[in-house]
Design a protein around this nucleic acid. Structure first.
Lengths: 236, 236
DNA sequence: GTATGTTTTAAACAGGTGTTTGAAATCGGC
DNA sequence: GCCGATTTCAAACACCTGTTTAAAACATAC
């Protein structure tokens, strides 16, 4: 082997880069092996198939991310005082930024992989992920429930996915957005600055006390402002 | 021709269905022409290339959507009293629901197409769309500015994309989410019910008065909590 | 040094891709 | 009826895909 790193890890490095840039199906094994300077057959030798390679790339990313996230969530759990939604969302920040430090454009690569995995046809990655990382997901939703105990589970479910959408969508395309931001507003921002704006946006949305059951669809009028208690929407 | 509709429109119908279900590159012209019961060569004859077919599918959807949206935005503009952020977001609801009525699963097909167009490799659809529909986009942001005049343009820019992410992500996958919602919470929801939950979420996030410049990143301490209770009644 | 297990290599495989071709079929006007 | 233009058709084109093969190279232990 002529270059640093084992054949296996070189394949993983190039694969994750190309997968995030071009998508899974648009990235050929020949492009990967050419970039990694290894033989075409070596990916089938080391990973078995392209499908397995995709999962391996995804797993390597998720493992290091969830490891960091679990640390931050554990720290928050031990913290004195009641937990705020804002704090729960903030546990995502450090792991994401760390991801951006470990490898170039790590955060956006990770989010792009996540986004692609989510919109995938057969969804075999989504199934794989929900099985493999259910504990992490459960801990996160558990913390959110602690921070917002009166929120009905179904409401929580939907708001969780609203947040997920903003997260993946924004960070996956953050490079293009940063460019626009710089040329239009002369503001140079990075992942950290985006998260500083995103987290308050999401926690405000998550904590909104709008009562959907009383809302007519086309209603344009004023909204109830007084009630502190968050909706228990509909029935249990 | 043995079946209703011209060859051209039959191709468009099947193409939009398969593109949304499987993605652009994963959908072959053979699959499209087989489903439409037309000859393989006819897509190249009528549209020139697969790339042009993708744009044609996209344009047909966008045209009917933006047409409806423009109507609702114009109506809102004429309305007496000051415009709320909530109202601006609500202009999206009726066009989306109408989209769902015109064809089966119209809203999710449309959103999936949007999502795929956004995460596309070369981004030729994104460029095409921003050029073709810049007027619609400008009108929408103009209304948002009227509803929230004190919001800095750069802040507006970011929050707009946060909302876009939630929108596309949630509606694109709403069928899978509805299934989970039904099996876990015995709540049967449709596009309309999702939007009723999503709009307040987004307007609360958009209107949040959190001051990002005062925010330390790793800070886990208390957060200004009053800001998150801020709602669609908006600025001030 | 030889034997053994692992890894790398070039080549071929079987199948799918978008696109082009030139002839056949169909349509509209007269 | 015929004619010219439009549309459809089966077939082939050139290329790319993931995967497999069997020989070569390498490493390691005795």
């Amino acid at each position: 082997m002529s270059h640093p790193g084992s054949t296996k890890s070189r394949i993983l490095n190039v694969a994750e880069e190309l997968f995030a840039k071009q998508g899974f199906t648009e990235t050929s094994l020949r492009a990967i092996t050419y970039g990694a300077e290894v033989n075409l057959a070596s990916v089938n030798y080391h990973f078995g198939s392209k499908k397995s390679l995709i999962e391996a790339v995804f797993e390597r990313f998720m493992n290091s991310f969830t490891e960091e996230l679990m640390l931050d969530m554990a720290a928050l759990e031990l913290q004195a005082g009641n937990i705020k939604v804002h704090d729960v969302l903030n546990t995502l920040v450090r792991p994401l930024i760390k991801m951006d430090e470990i490898r170039p454009k790590g955060a956006s690569v990770f989010m792009r992989l996540l986004g692609r995995a989510y919109s995938e046809t057969q969804g075999h990655i989504r199934r794989f992920a929900t099985a493999r990382y259910s504990a992490v997901f459960a801990k996160f939703t558990g913390l959110l429930h602690k921070a917002s105990p009166e929120l009905a589970p179904s409401e929580m479910f939907w708001r969780l996915h609203f947040m997920l959408g903003s997260f993946i969508f924004t960070l996956a395309g953050h490079e293009a957005l940063e460019e626009i931001s710089e040329s239009d507003f002369q503001e140079k921002v990075g992942v950290e600055q985006i998260l500083i704006r995103l987290i308050p946006f999401l926690s405000a949305g998550f904590c909104n006390t709008f009562n959907s059951s009383e809302q007519g669809l086309a209603k344009q009028g004023s909204v109830k402002q007084n009630s502190v208690t968050q909706m228990s929407s509909g029935e249990a």
